[in-house]
Structures are given as C-alpha cells and as structure tokens.
C-alpha cells in the first residue's frame, strides 16, 4: 500500500529526499499499543521539491493551534514514523521539551533544517515529530543508528544551532528499543547538557 513516489515539477527546486507528512491523534486514556498507534496515524501527502513542501505545509494547521494529544510527523518517503520500521528499529531520537507557545516556530525551523540537509550525517536522519501534549510540547528528530555517537552528537549540535537553543537547554536521547521496552516515547531518557 505504498503510495506512488512524487517527483519535482518543472522549474521547482528538488529536495535531496522526498518526505511524507503524517498526522496522528489519540485519546490519552487509551493504551498506546503499536497496533492502535498504526490505526491512528494518517498520511497527509508527500513532497519532492521546496515548492511542493510549501504548498502542503502552508495548508496545514500550525502545530501550536492543535488541541489534545496529537502529532505531526515529517519522515523520508518510505519510512513509517514507527519504532518498528526497518529504518528505525536500530535508531533513536533526540527530544527537546518546549513550553507551550513555542511549538509552531520550532517545528518549522527543525523541518526546514531537515529538508535543507543541514544535519550533514549522511543517510542517518529518518524524520522529525512535533508532539502536542497538555503541559508541554515535544520536538524530536529520529535517526537510524542510536549507537553511532559521532552521528548523534552532530545531530544534537546542529539542533542547537538551527533552533538557536541556549547552551543550557536540556536535550534527551532515547533509543527506540528503550521506547518499545517501556512502551513510552518520552519517559526514562538519557539527559545530555
């Protein structure tokens, strides 16, 4: 059930990779089993050029205007935003917790850095997620190989630069294996200053 690959239109600026936007929402009381997660996640569309990116992105609700427990995901085409996907199973993610009111701006900056190939880590980046929650919002960027410290450090340093984070911002890394084990995306993380 893979959708047809998109390609850049005439005169458009191609991206290094095609990306797919996804949206998910769940009732917080329901347990987040991987099956219910997959049922609650929807593809919005794919983009292959800068212009296609803006056409799609400009029509989406800003994440800061979403209510409840919802997420936007932007992943390389062909990679599902799930821990179990082949591209993700040995990977992990950097987590940045945001106070309310910052999600829209930080989400835009992180995805512009991703589609513009600012991270310089080869094929390592899988996608980015903004998670709207009740007390705080959470930004994360997923990479393929959680035990490659050169890569994860470079991603962390690029995040600091492109998001203009203060040097004392707490950043947390969590492997998808650990997320699977405790069935939680954001608990029991490894803190890095």
């Amino acid at each position: 059930n893979r959708r047809k690959m998109v390609s850049p239109g005439v005169g458009e600026h191609p991206l290094q990779y095609n990306y797919t936007f996804w949206y998910s929402r769940r009732t917080p009381s329901r347990p987040a089993s991987s099956q219910s997660y997959e049922q609650n996640i929807r593809q919005i569309g794919s983009v292959a050029s800068v212009e296609q990116f803006w056409r799609l992105y400009s029509h989406l609700v800003r994440p800061g205007d979403l209510s409840g427990h919802s997420d936007f995901h932007l992943f390389k085409e062909g990679i599902k935003p799930m821990w179990e996907d082949d591209s993700n199973r040995n990977g992990g993610k950097w987590i940045i917790r945001l106070r309310k009111g910052l999600a829209s701006r930080f989400w835009e900056n992180i995805i512009l850095a991703m589609v513009g190939e600012q991270f310089m880590v080869g094929e390592e980046i899988c996608g980015a997620v903004v998670s709207i929650r009740f007390q705080e919002d959470i930004l994360s960027i997923w990479n393929r190989t959680s035990n490659d410290q050169t890569t994860t450090s470079r991603i962390r340093d690029t995040l600091r630069r492109v998001l203009n984070l203060p040097t004392n911002t707490i950043m947390e890394y969590k492997t998808h294996n650990d997320s699977l084990r405790d069935n939680s995306s954001f608990r029991n993380t490894k803190i890095s200053l």
Binding site: G9, G11, E12, H13, P14, L15, Q16, V50, E51, F53, W54, R55, S58, N109, L112, A113, V115, G116, E117, Q118, V162
Partner: peptide, 21 residues
Amino acid sequence: GTRIIYDRKFLLGCRSSPLAK
C-alpha cells in the same frame, strides 16, 4: 554524489514563489 543543501533563508524565500502557492 552531490547533496542538495538549502539554508533556511533560501527555503523561506521560495515560499512566495508562484510555484509554491
């Protein structure tokens, strides 16, 4: 191969292009 790299300023500039509407 060559990587296609765009900085934020360039990407934001493309937003107003008629092709991006």
